[in-house]
Every structure is written in C-alpha cells, then in structure tokens.
Design a protein around this nucleic acid. Structure first.
Length: 491
RNA sequence: GCCAAGGUGGCAGAGUCUGGUAUAACGCGUCCGCCUGCAGAGCGGAUCGCCGCCGGUUCAAAUCCGGCCCUUGGCUCCA
C-alpha cells in the first residue's frame, strides 16, 4: 500500500514518489510574524506535523523546513505596540509562535529560517534572475517579468492576459502581473496606515524602524515571494518533494515561487504541492485581517492540546473546516472517547482480572482491522478524519471487552494499547498519559479522601450531602464517576 | 470578469480519483433499553438523508458525462 497525495499542480491524487526513495524534503510556508497565531495557522501546523510523522512512520528520512516571515509591512505597522522596531516586533511574535507550537505538541522542524537571516541568498537569487533575463530593474527595484517564464500560471491555471486586465498598472512594472523581487528604499507610511491599530506608533516613526539592506541596486527590502524560493533552496535543494501551504497562498505566492525558482535553476521547484483548506467560522475564513479569530494560545488554554489536535484533525487537510461551538464540542467528545478507551485498556491490563490465557477474538481482530484501516486512511492523502475514526472503533472494542468480560484478555489489551500509542500518540500526536504527575497526584489523593467521606454519606443514605460533595469536587475541576470498582475522581 | 474548491441526515463530516463487498462510515444531538440511589462513563438499539437541480451513459451512479443553480476561497496583505 503506497501513499497517495492530491497534487495541486496536476489537480489529481497521485502516487507519492520522492526524488530519493529513502528521504523526503518538506517545506511549509510559515506565517508572517505580525499578529498572534490563530487556529487557522494551527490547522496548517498540525496537519504538516502529522504528514511529517506519517512519512517518518513509513520509513522516510524527513527533512522539514518551516519559515518565519519577519520582514513585512504588517510587522512595521505594529511598531509602538508590540516592540520598538520592525525587528523587535518580529522577535516578539516569533517567540510567541514558538511557544504556541510547543503547546500543540508539534515535532520540531529541522530548520525555522527567517527572511532577515537570508538577505544575501535572496540577493544572489535576484541577480541570477536578472542575468537570465527573467527580471528587470527600475530605479533600484527589481521585478520579475512574467511574460519571460512560459509556465507562469501552471499551478493556479491563471492566464497572464487575464491577470493583466485585472491588475493595477503602476508606473514601474512592464506588466501588471509582474511582481517585486526587490523593493527600493524603506517602507512607505501610506502602506502601513491601513494595518495599524490605535496604539501603534505614528506611521512615519514606525517606518523609520523598518529594516533595509544594501544591494547591487541600492538600499532596499526583499519582495514577499522571493524569500521562500531562497530559503527552500538554501536549506533543502533546488528540487524538493513536498511544498505545503494554505489554500490562500496558491495564487499569487506559490505561483510566483515556482516562477522565480524554476527560472533561476531550470529545475522543477517542488514535485508535490499540497494545500491546506482554510478554517472558516460561519461563512467566512478565519483571518487576522478580518479579526474573527481565536488565537492558538486562547484555544489551547481553554481546551488543551489534545482537543485542539483532535479538532484540527477531524477534517481532512485539503477540505475547508468549520469552527463553531458544535464542531469544537464534537472534537471534545471524540477526544474523550479515545482517551477513555485507552485508559480503560490500561486499567484492565493492570487489573488482577487480566489473564494471559483469555483470548477475545473480537478484540484482537478489531485491533488488526484498526491498524489496517488507519494505514489505509493515512495513505489515502493523509485522511486524518478516517484515521481517527479507526481509533474510535478500537475504543469501542476495548469498552465492549471490558464491559462484557470478567476475565480480561491481557495480550489483546496490550495490543490495543500499543495501537493507541503507536498511532494515536506517534502519528496523530495525541497524548493519552497527559498530566498525571506531581501536583495532580496530590490533588488526586485529596480528592480520594473527599470521595471516601462521600461514600460514608451514601452508605448512610445521606444522598443530599453526598451530592454536595460531588458538586464541590466538580466545581474544582474534577469529574466524579461511580464505577464498578468504586468512585473515581479524574482531572 | 477570470481561476480554484465545494454543495451528502438536526449539526458536523467520510465515501466521489479506482461505478456494484453500503441497509450511505465515525462522532455530536434526540429517543428507548441495560447499568446506576441519581448522574456520568460505557454497552445495545432507534430516529433523521437516497447524496444541490435537470438530463444522459450503464445490468448497476453519491460515485462517470453534459447543462444549470448556489456557497466559499484566490485574483491586494493572508496558513
């Protein structure tokens, strides 16, 4: 069974064949560090993370690069608010993003390159494009000439003529569809005014802090698209295997990356282009500029990383996803069910009723089916929803086994636990063990003490007092359950 | 205007590439039963759709073909 992926370049789901059969070069278009990351960004991160984990699982040696765009007008617009200069604001947000990523239990990328560290490579690339007549200079700015690159539009199926008729005619560009590789001078206050918040520094002052670099064409700043071409080539290779990004980047960003890179190297830039669907609230996408977002920090703070990942993975990466109270509640239930299944399997194997001579065929065959279904789902264009569904089936089998048997199938349960851990933790990045250490242990003991008091009240028939004790425990964040083996408090 | 993705039960969301192993998965919601002092978790069962509309191909279509309607995204910064 081989991995198949939907390639935006061809519009088809095709067999994945990396350039080298043993390794994969993966690049993800990261974000501009001008605002706190929102759940839509997290959706991209988590899906790329799972792609990375699955490729590892399949035995590939994965090299994963994810950039930060720390040079941008929108960052300048935050000066005075989140820092004293463009570089300072960028640092503030890079730090926040790293924290957010950690909170989501993401595997680390091999490199997190920033634009500000790659200006020499960008300049080299622009020079190459000028040498090869794919670009032209006007008053210290350099533009890419889209008419010089025959394949322009191949990713997004755009026609240059059509783009020209829609584009803005500025004085410097030969064609409206041409785009900047290098921009002369600093940042124009007029360009940031619209992006500023109330407490930001005055536009003129903010723009004075914008970073500029020397170049063969004078002082200036790199264009937006060129960075990814330069960083991808620097840290991976001229041709990479998988380039991932949000669906909103297909045009113009990714189209322009292809044009720049392929014009410069004469090689195919990326073999597979995968695009992550956008996270939408009611009827519109979640976006910083629309202000309709929930930040990663808020969401993870409220729901925790496991619910966050379950939520983000409950829709296949290429589809759009809906963010609403209902969809989040569903994710909470799905996670709860997975966690309960895992926990009950662990508790049953630890029980004195677990026997090595008992065999439950239903449990054992379900484990095998689940592994097969999970693998098939992931190989089918990383279908994380189907993969999660397989694990939910496993939870059902464990529950049935524990409910219906007095003697437990130790070996079968072990296999179920291994499956939860290999696939749920290893591939989906969930964490079943969770927080059962240190502080929680003390809390657990105190809760148990209260529960024993509650038991006395219950035995005495004082249900009113017993329920009060339960309510008090629950008010402190515990969940009280009366099980066959007695009352239990969970956190 | 151009490009792309998508329209499946109350919600959400697989399946569509490779037409039939489907009485349309999984979850949520609702209802009933088991369990329970009650509740929760769990188990079992049920409810709700014939898959945007129209036509075609086929022994057979949610899945293929044609037309139409609608939604979202991109064409300016955006994961």
């Amino acid at each position: 069974m081989t991995l198949r992926v939907t390639n935006t370049l061809t519009g088809e789901r095709e067999a994945f064949e990396p350039r080298d059969p043993d390794s994969v070069l993966l690049y993800y278009c990261g974000l501009t560090t001008s605002d706190p990351a929102h759940l839509g960004h997290a959706r991209g991160w988590v899906h790329v993370d799972v792609m990375h984990r699955w490729l590892d699982h399949l035995g590939y040696d994965v090299r994963h690069v994810e950039n930060f765009t720390d040079v941008n007008e929108k960052i300048v617009a935050r000066v005075g608010e989140d820092g004293d200069s463009e570089a300072d604001v960028a640092r503030t947000y890079v730090q926040q993003v790293i924290r957010d990523m950690r909170s989501l239990n993401l595997l680390r990328a091999d490199v997190y390159p920033r634009v500000s560290e790659h200006v020499p490579q960008i300049i080299d690339l622009v020079e190459t494009l000028l040498d090869r007549d794919y670009a032209y200079e006007v008053d210290g700015s350099v533009y890419f000439d889209v008419t010089a690159f025959d394949d322009y539009g191949k990713l997004s199926n755009q026609q240059v003529d059509e783009l020209d008729s829609q584009g803005e005619h500025t004085g410097e560009k030969r064609n409206p569809a041409d785009f900047a590789l290098w921009k002369a001078g600093g940042v124009d206050p007029d360009d940031i005014a619209d992006h500023q918040h109330e407490d930001a520094a005055p536009p003129e002052e903010a723009c004075e802090t914008a970073q500029t670099w020397d170049s063969p064409w004078g002082e200036g700043r790199p264009g937006w698209h060129i960075e990814c071409s330069a960083m991808s080539t620097t840290h991976l290779d001229d041709t990479i295997d998988i380039h991932v990004g949000g669906q909103d980047l297909v045009f113009p960003h990714h189209e322009n990356e292809i044009a720049q890179s392929e014009a410069a190297t004469g090689q195919q830039f990326a073999r597979y282009w995968l695009h992550v669907g956008l996270l939408e609230t009611k009827d519109e996408k979640m976006s910083s500029s629309l202000g309709n977002f929930s930040t990663v920090a808020e969401f993870v703070g409220e729901h925790g990383p496991n619910v966050a990942r379950t939520f983000l993975l409950s829709t296949a990466y290429h589809s759009k996803a809906t963010y609403s109270a209902e969809t989040v509640a569903e994710a909470e239930e799905r996670w709860e069910r997975l966690q309960t299944g895992h926990r009950r399997a662990v508790e049953a194997t630890d029980s004195v009723d677990a026997h090595t001579t008992v065999e439950d065929d239903d449990l054992r065959s379900t484990v095998d089916e689940v592994r097969e279904a999970f693998t098939a789902a992931m190989n089918d264009d990383f279908n994380t929803r189907e993969a999660t569904t397989a694990l939910l089936d496993l939870a059902g089998a464990v529950n049935r086994h524990v409910d219906d048997h007095d003697a437990y199938d130790y070996v079968g349960l072990r296999r179920a636990i291994e499956t939860f851990e290999d696939l749920g933790e290893g591939v989906l990045g969930l964490s079943f063990g969770g927080e059962s250490e240190g502080d929680v242990r003390v809390a657990q003991e105190l809760a148990d003490l209260l529960l024993s008091v509650r038991e006395q009240e219950r035995e005495a028939g004082n249900y009113e007092r017993a329920d009060e004790l339960r309510d008090e425990l629950e008010a402190l964040g515990a969940t009280v359950e009366d099980t066959d083996d007695g009352p239990v408090a969970r956190f």
